[in-house]
Structures are given as structure tokens and as C-alpha cells.
């Protein structure tokens, strides 16, 4: 990166270390922290949205919708996460290529399955083979994000459905007594009050989501775990900066990062709990909050 780093073999001490820590590979390592934070920033609202839809479907008067919502929540919660994390990106990737194969290929093979191979024409590839590496990385990230949103959406759905049931019935009936429609009761009474009941469960979910981010590594996204292993492994002089096994230092760095992240999250959720609790009859919610924290 710096001109003085041109020949690492003659460097020593701190100068060597400074050059070592600013190689292109290390820059990728540092930016992969951004990848993890970006995943969290996108997966959390996406999961919340999916969860909200799931919880609404679960409460729906329409039996088909209710069945769909219940099936989604029960199925995803009942299957090991890792199975979904491995299944969703592959299935989604191949589904997209299958559809593109029908749309964009002039000469289509009889079947996309030929022996072991999944074959689509060049124009149906997702992304195209000629696309920039950045696009391939982005697509991998989007697939991973979708898997996170689907899995954590089901858990969020369960939490939100429980929170909706926890709002005191008397409150809703009072709304009805004032002549509010079901929709108005939901919008003006249930929705503002449910969050205090949902928060303990959601904060747990957030912690689990934070700790699940290394699954990105499993999905082939070059996240911080990938780089810690790659950079920490012992290096012979085939590399410009040979060094022995330094994985313990890199993984210690990750440890600090995750501890900081969860520590800050705890504080933020604490503040949020106080803020949302204003003006509410909190006795019930506090108790539930304490329970939720244990669960």
C-alpha cells in the first residue's frame, strides 16, 4: 500500500508490522467487518417484516392465510437452522437460473438436469459469467441475506404473534366499545402496545442473529471468520509476509468485536425498553420481560 512497503523482505519490527497490516488482503479483512454489520442492518428489518407478515397471517380470519402463516413459523422453527441456511441459497439460486433459462435461452436443453450437472445457457447464468466479480459477491450476499431473513423471520413471527396476544383484552374491547372497527383497534390500540411485550423476545433474537453471522462463512461469503482463518494460517515464503500460525490473535480480535457488539446491543435494548414503557401499565410487561430475558 505504501511505497516503503515495496520489498517486505528487508523490513523488520514495527515497520514490517505496519506494512503487513495494510496489505490488500488486510484491507479486505477490515472491510469484511462492514459486510457483517451490513448483513445485520439488512437482515434484522427484513426478518422483522417477514415475521410481522407471518404473525398477521397467523391471526387472520382467512383459514388459508392462517394455515400459511402457521406452517411458515412452525416449519422453519422446527428444522435445524443450518439445513435452511444450506438449502435456501442453493434452491433460490437454481430457481432463478431455471426461470431465466426459460425466459432468455433461445436453444434450451431438454432438461436443466444432465446427470450430475445443473445446466443453463450462458444468458441464463445468475449473475452472468462475464459480470464483474463485485456482482458475483453481491449475489452471494443477497442469497445469504434471504436465508437469514427467512429463518429469523419465523422466530420473529412467533415472538410478534405472542406479543399481539399479550396485549390486555380489556384494552381492545374498550376500543370496540368506543365504536372502533377491528382495523382501527389493531392500528391504534394493539400495534402501539404490542412492542413492549415483543421487545424481550426480539432482543434475544437479535443476540442470536449477531452470533449467527459467522454462518456467512459457511455460505461462501468472505466474512470476518473467513479472513481470520485465511490471514492467521501459517505462511511460508511463497507469501510476501511469511509468519507462523497466528490464528489465535485474529480470532481473539473477532472475540473482542463480537463482545463489543453484543454489549452495545444490550445497552440499546435497555434504553429502548425504558422508552417504550413510558405511560404503560408495566407490571405485566416487566414480569414478562424478566421471563423473556431468561428464555
Amino acid at each position: 500500500m505504501f511505497a516503503s512497503c515495496a520489498d517486505p523482505s528487508i523490513l523488520s519490527g514495527l515497520h514490517w508490522l505496519a506494512c503487513y497490516l495494510t496489505t490488500a488482503k488486510h484491507i479486505s479483512f477490515y472491510s469484511s467487518f462492514g459486510t457483517v454489520l451490513l448483513l445485520l442492518a439488512l437482515a434484522a428489518p427484513a426478518a422483522l417484516l417477514l415475521g410481522f407478515a407471518g404473525a398477521l397471517a397467523d391471526r387472520s380470519q382467512n383459514w388459508l392465510l392462517a394455515l400459511l402463516g402457521r406452517a411458515y413459523i412452525a416449519m422453519v422453527r422446527g428444522v435445524p437452522d443450518i439445513v435452511f441456511f444450506l438449502f435456501v441459497p442453493i434452491a433460490l439460486d437454481q430457481a432463478v437460473e431455471y426461470i431465466r433459462n426459460i425466459l432468455f435461452c433461445d436453444e434450451r436443453a431438454a432438461s436443466v438436469w444432465q446427470g450430475n450437472d445443473f445446466v443453463v445457457c450462458a444468458a441464463a447464468k445468475m449473475p452472468l459469467s462475464s459480470a464483474a466479480p463485485f456482482v458475483h459477491t453481491l449475489w452471494g450476499f443477497v442469497l445469504a441475506l434471504t436465508a437469514f431473513a427467512i429463518v429469523f423471520g419465523a422466530f420473529a413471527g412467533n415472538v410478534l404473534a405472542g406479543a399481539m396476544r399479550a396485549v390486555p383484552r380489556a384494552q381492545l374491547e374498550t376500543g370496540a366499545a368506543y365504536g372502533m372497527t377491528d382495523r382501527q383497534v389493531f392500528r391504534h390500540i394493539l400495534l402501539p402496545q404490542m412492542w413492549i411485550y415483543a421487545l424481550p423476545g426480539l432482543s434475544n433474537l437479535w443476540m442470536i442473529l449477531v452470533k449467527a453471522t459467522p454462518l456467512l462463512f459457511l455460505l461462501g461469503v468472505q466474512d470476518i471468520v473467513y479472513w481470520a482463518r485465511e490471514l492467521g494460517g501459517s505462511k511460508t515464503s511463497a507469501y510476501a509476509y511469511p509468519h507462523p500460525d497466528w490464528r489465535v490473535w485474529y480470532f481473539s480480535g473477532l472475540l473482542v468485536f463480537y463482545l463489543l457488539l453484543t454489549f452495545v446491543s444490550e445497552r440499546v435494548f435497555g434504553l429502548l425498553m425504558t422508552r417504550l414503557g413510558r405511560g404503560q401499565a408495566l407490571q405485566g410487561a416487566r414480569q414478562q420481560g424478566a421471563l423473556g430475558g431468561v428464555l
Partner: peptide
């Protein structure tokens, strides 16, 4: 798998 294939410091 150096020296067959590896990712150098320029990534």
C-alpha cells in the same frame, strides 16, 4: 495450497 495455488498479499 502454495505453491500450486494461493492468495497473495495483494488479494
Amino acid at each position: 495450497y502454495p505453491p500450486y495455488n494461493f492468495i497473495n498479499d495483494k488479494n
